[in-house]
Nucleic acid binder design. Structure first.
Lengths: 195, 195
DNA sequence: TGCTACATGTAAAATGTTACATGATTCG
DNA sequence: CGAATCATGTAACATTTTACATGTAGCA
């Protein structure tokens, strides 16, 4: 129940509604976790049944009431226990773009090339976003050992991940170039590149 | 049904049994896709019902019979169509180790430090494995535009991914160091580091 | 004799996504 | 006046993981 621990990790930093947790997944911790709201509401109910979180109801006029969740003492203990436990080494898996690269030889080289350039520009801009954020919080986050440092560390993962994605795109471009140039240079007087 | 396309991508390179596909997921294309055998058998049945793959039965004595699957013409067409279609940009998500780093401030700095070093050594050795493989196939794979190039490109993704993971671990070590040293230097005559 | 590899599958549980459903407020 | 945001949830569906189940062959 990793999602449960993700929620506990957020609630450890302060109480929140399901809706707020959802937004945190989409923004703050997007670098390493994603969850949709039905998932979150379901998991919150489960965590509550295990007494790892509790909630209080805030009655609102002219708006639906909200349930503000907080982590319990038991939840805090469980979170710490889980931190100590060894994590399974999950290899990088199920990346659709890499899967497409695997079969990209079925496309014309020029087509494959333009696809990879599109992908590069997307990841380059995500990388820029992380970079900006990193610069903004670096000083404060690394000035003391606490929650901000944790946020900073996970943000760094987003940064290095996107960096590696851009780097990969560049290597793919080079490799395609090399493969097509080499192939062409072996038959200099050709009519069509692929036949 | 991305798993379906992963299977079609493998079968495009040659026929295989469900068992062989499973092994390919675990070894050859482990850099970007993972699937368990119940998943593969189910997906093969589904692909067959859509006429994207077909199979022939090979009767074996003293062993269970095997079904050798191959991609159909329709499957090949569908694979090419899918390659052209734009992929959703999936951000890097649901990494348990990064999630733990997010809450690592709950552990003693020394404990967090030793955890990240363990993680680094694991990813360093995976990285080495990809690096060796890359060097072995680079020349052949980039000498012509074909299936080997595709394999090479996806392997490069595994390489850059693990590289970025190791780099991240190093940055985490540095950041923890900085945060604890800074905190300590603000109270030079201390009895305990954390109190 | 016990472990690994071969080879296939089912069943159940857990997890994740998409669509449906409600209703007020704020911004342009 | 329409779109986005706030705030909650359900229902149905799809996907993924784990455990169960079977049986042979080869190796140490």
């Amino acid at each position: 129940m990793s999602l449960g621990y993700a929620i506990l990790s957020l609630l450890e930093r302060g109480e929140a509604t399901g809706y707020e947790l959802m937004k945190q997944f989409d923004h703050t911790v997007a670098a390493f976790w994603h969850a949709t709201h039905p998932q979150i509401y379901r998991e919150l109910r489960q965590l509550e049944s295990q007494k790892l979180v509790s909630h209080r109801l805030v009655v609102q006029k002219h708006r639906p009431n909200k349930k503000i969740f907080r982590i319990t003492k038991a939840g805090n203990t469980e979170l710490k226990r889980w931190l100590e436990e060894p994590s399974p080494v999950a290899p990088q898996v199920n990346d659709v773009s890499t899967l497409k690269a695997f079969s990209s030889y079925l496309l014309e080289p020029q087509r494959a090339m333009s696809k990879i350039r599109e992908l590069k520009s997307i990841h380059r801009s995500i990388h820029e976003k992380w970079k900006t954020l990193e610069q903004q919080i670096r000083e404060v986050a690394t000035s003391k050992y606490g929650a901000d440092l944790g946020l900073y560390l996970s943000l760094l993962r987003g940064l290095t991940y996107e960096e590696s994605y851009v780097r990969w795109c560049e290597m793919v471009e080079e490799a395609i170039q090399r493969a097509t140039v080499k192939a062409a240079s072996r038959s200099p007087v050709r009519k069509r590149a692929t036949s």
